[in-house]
Each structure stands twice: as C-alpha cells, then as structure tokens.
Write a protein that binds this DNA or RNA. Structure first.
Length: 575
RNA sequence: CGGUGAUUGGCGCAGCUUGGUAGCGCACUUGGUUUGGGUCCAAGGGGUCGCAGGUUCAAAUCCUGCAUCACCGACCA
C-alpha cells in the first residue's frame, strides 16, 4: 500500500475525550473514529488489524472442531420471551419495533437464536456433539460506554455454543475450547492468563475468563506465587486465618470519636491499625425461602473490602445485594453509618473469618461519634456466624494451598462457560437419545471480544511514540520510509524496487511515498506501530545499503539492498 | 440511573465575568525555503459559536428549556 493512496488519518494531538492510552492511540493512529457514544467506525488501518485477529480466532476454532455460522443481529422478541430474558434483562437490551409494530431486539448475545436453530435442525444423538461459532457484531446498550472500543455499545465478538448429551462430552469440548483460547492468545502475541471466574448472569457452573494483563485493566486477578492457581478476585476464596484467636486482654470501653466516621479516621484518632478495627455493613436479608427478612449485619476487618458476590451468595443475604439507607441504619442502631457496631445489635450477624479472628478490637458503639475498644467475640457478642465475605488481598494464603496470592489487573478478552441446560430447558431443545427418549441438551458457550482485543493489545504494547503491534496483528508488517524521494531518482528507484519485491513476496508493506519531511514519516510509522521499518537515504545508498529498524527494540542495522528480502523473510517467517 | 463538567472551523483551545457581530495553535491550499526525527517565511480557504425560545437597539457572551458528549459512582457476557 502506498500511503499517498491510503487513508492514513493520523493525528498529532490527543482528542479531548479519550481517557486511556489505547483509546488515545487508536484515534491518533487512525484506527477508529467515534460516531456516537459507544459506536465506532473502523478506519482502513483498524480493519486490517481487526481482520487479522479474526483470522487467528477462526483458524484456531476450526482446528478445534468448531463450525462457523452467521446469525442475524436483529432478533425477534418471541425467542427472548421464551427464554425469559425479555423480562430479566433491563435497558441493556435494545428493543424496537418494525413497521408492523412487531417487537425485536438488537442481539447482545445469541443463545436464543442458536438454541432455536439446534432444536429445529438436530433431532438425533448421532448428530452430537456440535460446536457452532460466529464472528458477529453485538449491541449492548451499556449504561456507561467508555474507554473507546474497550467498552463500546456495538462491538465485534466471536461467540460459540456447544451442544451435548452428557457432562463428559461438554467437559471435553470445554477443554478443547480452553486449549484453543490459549493458542489464540499466544498467537496474538499477548501476555494473558486463564482465571477461574464467576459465571454471572448467563448462568451455569464452571467458567474461566481469559485476561490480558495490563495495569489499566478493569478486573483484578489473584495469582498464587507458587502454583498455576489464578482467579478473578471476586471468585478467589479467602481462607480463614490459621491458629486460635488470641485471648481477650482488654475490657470493653466506650470512647468518644468526634468527627471520625471512616476506618481511617478512627485508626488515626485512636492510634490503632485499621486491621484492628471491625467495620459493620447493614444489608437487606432473606430467609431460607428467599423472602425478605429485614436486615443483616456484615462485618469485616477495617483494612478489608466487601466482596459483593460472596455476600450475595450467603443464604441470609437478599439478592441482589442491597445496602440499608442511612435512615434505615439510624432507625435500627440509633446511630449514623460510621458509628455502628455489632454490640447490642438485634439482627443476624455474619462475620468475615478475618474479622472473627480479632480480639481486643475497635468497632462502632451504635451511638454517634462513639466507638468501643477492647471488644471481644463471645464475651461481648454472643450470637454470630462466620463466613468468607471479603476480597482477597495481596499476601493472603492461596486457596489452592500453595503459596501466597499476588494481585494484578487484567482486561477480560475471553470467557468460557459450562452453561448447562438453562436455555435448552427453557426452549425445549432436545434430541432422541440411544433409548429413543427425548433428552434435553446441555450447553457450553464461549466468547471472545474481538474488537476489545485490539484495545487490550495496545494497552499492553505501546511506548511514548505510539503503538507497538505484535507481528501477528500489525496492520502492516513493513514500512518503507524513503528520505526525500521526490528529489532523488536513486532513492525513488530503490524504494519502488523494494516495495515491489517485498509485496510480491507476500508481505504487507506500507510504502510512505508522501512528499513529507522525514520526521513526519518516522513519527507516523511509529505511531501506527509497524513492526519493521526500512529507511532509504542517500548516504547509505552509496554503499548499496538501507537501514532496518525494529519498532519494539529500537535496534537499527544496515542491510545490503539485495539482502532485504531474505532478511525480512527470516524475521517474519512465523507470521 | 445519580453526581460533576463540557459543547466556538477537521483537531486542541481562547473569547463569555463587564453584550457591540469571532480569534490562536495544529491541520488544509498555493508559492518559496529546508531535507535522517513533527523546518522556516509569505499568501489563502474554511465557523448560522450544539438546538429552540426569551431579554435587548444589539447575544458566542445574559435567562429558560432541550439535545449531545465526557468524567466519577452504581451497573455490566
């Protein structure tokens, strides 16, 4: 491609509304443009990378036995009513009507459509298992789209759905997908981890997320420092502390803590570490039948954070997790949040293991601007139960039993689930089994955020000059940068010849034939992150040489003009 | 959905307090200059100041409503 005949669309300045580095660079390097909130146009350079990601995903899935289909993005409401998600999903599901006032949705995912297809087309156990995938645009009306294509409303996703008669068969496909995903992210050249995950609203049991590690990631991941264990922090179990709770040594006392509501304030005022303070959170509770039963108090160590997922799964806690309002707290305890505590509180008490291991601790006194010190379990608070309620923190013992946890941030680019029969049951997707009886299918589903991968790759691979694409997904492999070509026939001939030679050899070459100053061309090619640059200038050409520069390492070397092709072939053989 | 802020040429911004008919940098066009890291000089083109209404002799500027966009929070395969 000649840059003079291409839409380069690079920008020198950062657009004002881009926040994270990948968003800024995607705009500046001319990959995307915003159309409206959460909606992006992919420019030619962006499409090139997107297609490369798609290609790798497609190849690895095909290799793993999945079969490509393409389903409509517009879906009829009946299917969603049948699965129950027409009612379950909120405004995230974009609904609209056609000219006959029939209800439709813009597909945020395709479980309904694929399950409908399978129940019509598959009638015998002999046709199973089956794993179908598509690469399709999704629409989710996110409450708050942000970070460019990272959390867009319209985005490109690979979604696969597998159908089985047995858990063993599902597990087999699940394992194959796990391996295929690992292969995909390895080929993409990304630093990633597969982590244990919650299956969330989609339902199901076993689930792994694939995360690209990046400090800007929205998710926190817990790793063991001495095993393969990795889990989303929302899933990582916090083990109860070892050993016996220390015996009480202080007596209960009430102290005045004016203007000290937060754990930090109280710790500073009383000169105790936050870990010696217990904080109390009041949430709505429920009974065994899931009916509202008033309030429940949750207690955590002052330096720990509530894990909403764990709390919500506790049988005494109402779903969804709902915090008591300030007024409710005051009515219940006689004090405002910041001064509440478990002593004398007449509601069920669920205490995190770590908080339950404290002795002589500090907590609110249920009297405004007062706290209790020297508080001890059993002696001062008789009735409570313990549970795992907190987020793990760096340094916690790993739930796998080996090593301690380390926390890092990641961007979720893939998610695989064992769905079970949630959709097949609701939509009556079954086949005749070997006994000739109808059997409901069990399902798996497997997603990859194709457009998000682009942003994640940039978050992980950039420097102050711009993007540093991994070879496998760079929009172009080689940039030819001639110095003052428009003044030198020699340079023009050398550049044209190299361009032709490399292009014919199958390389994707961007030939910067613009009548621009060298600095402009260098800056643009580096901003775009083209991995391999060839600079043609008068002084090297005297020795029949050109300069090669590697974008990532910055290494420069001189190449004989007639060696360029073989050099590039050896550098790019794997791509 | 709650809070905060923004909207002036393709991009980034000033002007608004104190109303008088729009400006800067980059980009773009033309000519010259320069030529291995975003040159320099000169001349140009491009804006119903987000939309609607109001106040006024006069509105980018003051008032009201609406829309759009972003950030923080809640939410989220």
């Amino acid at each position: 491609m000649r840059s003079s005949q291409y839409l380069l669309a690079t920008m020198k300045e950062n657009p004002a509304d881009a926040e994270i580095i990948s968003h800024k660079l995607m705009l500046r390097a001319g990959l995307v443009r915003r159309l409206a909130s959460g909606l992006y146009t992919y420019l030619p350079t962006g499409v090139r990378t997107l297609r490369k990601v798609e290609r790798i995903v497609r190849e690895e899935l095909n290799k793993a036995g999945a079969i490509e289909v393409l389903m409509p993005m517009v879906q009829n409401a009946e299917l969603w009513q049948e699965s129950g998600r027409w009612e379950q999903m909120d405004a995230e599901l974009l609904r609209f009507q056609d000219r006959h006032q029939r209800d439709f949705v813009l597909g945020p995912t395709h479980e309904e459509v694929i399950t409908d297809l399978i129940r019509r087309e598959v009638t015998s156990y002999k046709q199973l298992p089956l794993n179908l995938y598509q690469i399709q645009t999704k629409f989710r009306d996110e409450r708050r789209p942000r970070f460019g294509v990272m959390r867009a409303r319209e985005f490109l996703m690979k979604d696969a759905y597998s159908f089985h008669l047995s858990q063993e068969s599902l597990q087999q496909t699940y394992n194959a997908m796990y391996q295929a995903y690992s292969n995909i992210f390895t080929r993409l050249g990304l630093d990633f981890r597969a982590v244990l995950a919650d299956s969330g609203a989609i339902g199901g049991s076993v689930s792994h997320e694939f995360h690209v590690l990046a400090s800007s990631g929205e998710d926190a991941i817990a790793f063991s420092d001495s095993s393969d264990y990795a889990a989303n922090v929302e899933m990582a179990a916090a083990l109860p502390p070892q050993g016996e709770r220390p015996a009480p040594s202080q007596s209960l006392a009430k102290v005045s803590t004016p203007n000290a509501g937060s754990v930090e304030d109280v710790a500073a005022l009383l000169n105790v570490p936050p870990a010696q303070i217990a904080k109390t959170l009041i949430v709505r509770g429920c009974n065994e039948d899931g009916e509202d039963s008033g309030f429940v108090a949750l207690m955590l160590r002052g330096d720990h954070q509530l894990n909403a997922l764990k709390a919500e799964k506790h049988p005494r806690v109402a779903q969804p997790l709902t915090f008591a309002t300030d007024a409710e707290i005051e009515a219940l305890t006689g004090a405002q949040p910041g001064s509440i505590g478990p002593v004398g509180l007449e509601i069920p008490l669920v205490v995190d293991h770590s908080a339950a291991h404290l002795s002589d601790f500090v907590c609110g006194a249920n009297q405004n601007e007062h706290h209790l010190t020297g508080v001890n379990w059993l002696r001062d608070i008789a009735d409570f139960e313990t549970s795992d309620l907190r987020n793990v923190v760096s340094g916690d013992a790993s739930p796998c039993g080996q090593g301690v946890l380390e926390i890092r941030r990641g961007i979720e680019v893939g998610h695989i689930f064992q769905l079970g029969d949630k959709y097949s049951q609701a939509m009556k997707a079954g086949v005749l089994n070997e006994e000739g009886k109808n059997q409901i299918l069990t399902m798996g589903c497997y997603g990859i955020g194709v457009s998000r991968i682009m942003a994640a790759a940039i978050e992980q691979n950039h420097d102050e000059h711009g993007i540093i694409w991994p070879d496998a997904i760079a929009p172009f492999q080689i940039a030819i940068i001639p110095m003052n070509m428009h003044k030198s026939v020699r340079i023009q001939q050398a550049a044209e010849q190299l361009y032709q030679q490399l292009t014919e050899a199958g390389f994707e070459v961007l030939f910067d034939d613009r009548k621009e100053r060298p600095g402009v061309m260098f800056a643009d090619m580096e901003l775009m992150g083209i991995p391999h640059q060839i600079v043609i200038g008068e002084r090297n050409l005297d020795q029949q040489q050109v300069e090669y520069k590697h974008r990532r390492s910055g290494d420069k070397s001189l190449l004989q003009l007639d060696q360029v092709l073989t050099e590039m072939q050896s550098k790019l053989q794997s791509a």
